[in-house]
Design a protein around this nucleic acid. Structure first.
Lengths: 344, 344
DNA sequence: CTGAAAGCGCTTACAG
DNA sequence: CTGAAAGCGCTTACAG
């Protein structure tokens, strides 16, 4: 039954020629009229515009791009669509582009360098004007394998090459903010439970936390930071361990919201009141986890959507000729909820 | 300092003409050689291919598309990138396309019809060969406002127009599976706590559940299904209510994994053992919630990634001329974890 | 103010 | 087997 009709939509789209014919002018004039060029009589322009509307004319961007040497498109290569971190970045970038004339090609490399190469080649063939590469985790990643003749911006995960343009969130600053917030809430015995120790960003956060503690004249409760994995189970286990070693702890800075959820559970089971006895702050501000927690979880937001938007802006700038390079760190912010309140 | 260098990548890309010149043939011959046409001497072909490689020739897809009347691109319009349901669908679609010659434009309409229109127009102007529209929630949605001359496939949220092509997950079947699984585990007093009652899909799931209960000669524990919102808090509250009205309940089918997490919490606090006293099954199989639950949560997976892949296949078929239409429901599957086990 | 012509980079009949 | 020519849909100098 199928496929008898031949390719759907085979009815040819209307072209400038059709519009020109209907308006009774040459295609050159039609083009100028539609593009707002100055040298067209007002009445002629009106007739052309009217004809274009009547025919539902939609200019062929392929032809235009071929001529202009610019396609008005951009490639967004993510390493991991599944991961929840690339999505907000992607949203921010899509948002920044979408409002203008630029369309975005989405490619998921699934963390595979070969696949990434394949996508880069395809995008180059489509003559994208630039590329944004969104990493799966915040650590530095190798630059794209191929030499590409267009600007590239690395987002979330910076390129290992300092000559590239990278936009990341300021993990040191985020760690610092978390502790400063807890100190501002009057806490003195602050512990840090983090995740996978192979994440450089985790250590950056710890560094920021230690700086802030030092400035407040405090030491880390529990004797050291606890590293494990980015899971609720680890948050629970580490908290039990911590309570044994340092029962007087009055605040816990968790390396992620998942860990924080485990921390809250374990504190609850140990009969500690949050935030009365122990304040808890998470990291990432993963809404669904943070707002549903009991009590709702204070967390450090890493502003990923903003990061995506900035990446898009930097890409635009580079396409327009900017030669700025290097890694730019964007500040985090604390979103306060019920799990941290001042002691009084 | 910036922008002195002029637009980056301004060094013109190599063209077929460059390749032909280096190989000492006409561009027609070069084209045929590169595209595997039969009428080319082997030695000539080799010379052309060699030249193309040396020059890193990447054929201009814009020129090719202009000529072919087909761009080899497809538009993916999502209503809600933030939502966690559109992402897997998008992954599946991207995956199905990405392995071939098709590139995907991503557009987020943010649930706004005006924005959607804007994106449709832009995509049409880029001469995409087809469109996939991914809804934000599983209920039927109005078809695209504009008449589009290319095939459209609606995924996750079906079009209200039965003449359109829609791919959705089988919510009735999913509800049925959930109850059948609980019955298979020997449960007799099965309750259903669902979410926002304005979701048609929620009622579909209930319907499937009721059918399966009827076939097992059982009635719904708690007297009726409990509707509220898709949150942990509601899961907790509803469970408390349920335990009061029907203390003998031995299984709860939650309308989402978030609700299920709340259910588990409340059961835990009420001193009920899961799955010993009460079995719990969720819906959506949201990995991060399900695997981190205590015990790990059994859940109905709605196979969104597969749904995206099928949507892509249907779009391809339509582009190739298939005229099949209507709504296609894809089956769910139960992913069993620790929260449900046979009574024995 | 308007239009004929050239050209963006490629592919495809059509001659040779 | 190879190449000259036309053409996809548009824009932009350049004449008139």
């Amino acid at each position: 039954m199928a496929s008898q009709a031949g390719p759907a939509g085979a009815s040819k789209a209307t072209t400038l020629t059709d519009v020109a014919r209907l308006a009774g002018v040459s295609i050159a004039t039609a083009s100028k009229a539609l593009n707002g060029r100055a040298q067209v009589k007002a009445e002629t322009r009106a007739r052309v515009i009217d004809a274009a509307e009547r025919l539902q004319f939609s200019p062929n961007a392929l032809a235009r791009g071929l001529l202009a040497g610019r396609s008005g498109t951009v490639g967004l290569i993510t390493s991991d669509l599944e991961g929840r971190f690339s999505i907000p970045v992607l949203m921010g970038a899509e948002d920044a582009f979408g409002s203008g004339q630029t369309s975005v090609f989405l490619c998921d490399a699934r963390g595979d360098a070969i696949r990434e190469q394949h996508h880069v080649r395809a995008l180059l063939s489509r003559r994208v004007d630039g590329l944004i590469v969104v990493g799966a985790r915040p650590d530095p990643r190798p630059p794209l394998a191929a030499e590409v003749p267009i600007p590239v911006v690395y987002a979330y995960a910076p390129s290992e090459d300092p000559g590239d343009v990278s936009i990341v969130s300021d993990n040191v600053g985020g760690g610092r903010m978390a502790v400063e917030h807890l100190v501002a809430c009057g806490r003195q015995r602050i512990a840090h439970i983090s995740g996978d120790p192979t994440y450089g960003a985790a250590h950056d956060r710890e560094r920021g936390a230690l700086e802030a503690l030092g400035e407040a004249g405090l030491a880390l409760a529990g004797g050291r930071a606890y590293y494990g994995s980015w899971s609720e189970a680890w948050g629970r286990g580490a908290t039990r361990m911590l309570l044994e070693r340092d029962p007087d702890v009055d605040a816990i800075f968790a390396g992620s919201d998942q860990i924080a959820r485990g921390v809250l559970d374990a504190l609850h089971e140990a009969g500690r009141d949050v935030p009365g006895d122990v304040a808890v702050i998470g990291f990432d501000n993963w809404e669904v986890l943070a707002t549903n927690a009991r009590p709702p979880l204070t967390s450090v937001d890493i502003n990923l959507e903003h990061l995506g938007r900035v990446a898009a802006q930097r890409l635009f700038a580079a396409i327009d000729g900017s030669t700025r390079s290097g890694t730019e760190s964007l500040p985090c912010r604390v979103v306060a909820r019920g799990s941290t309140t001042p002691l009084d």
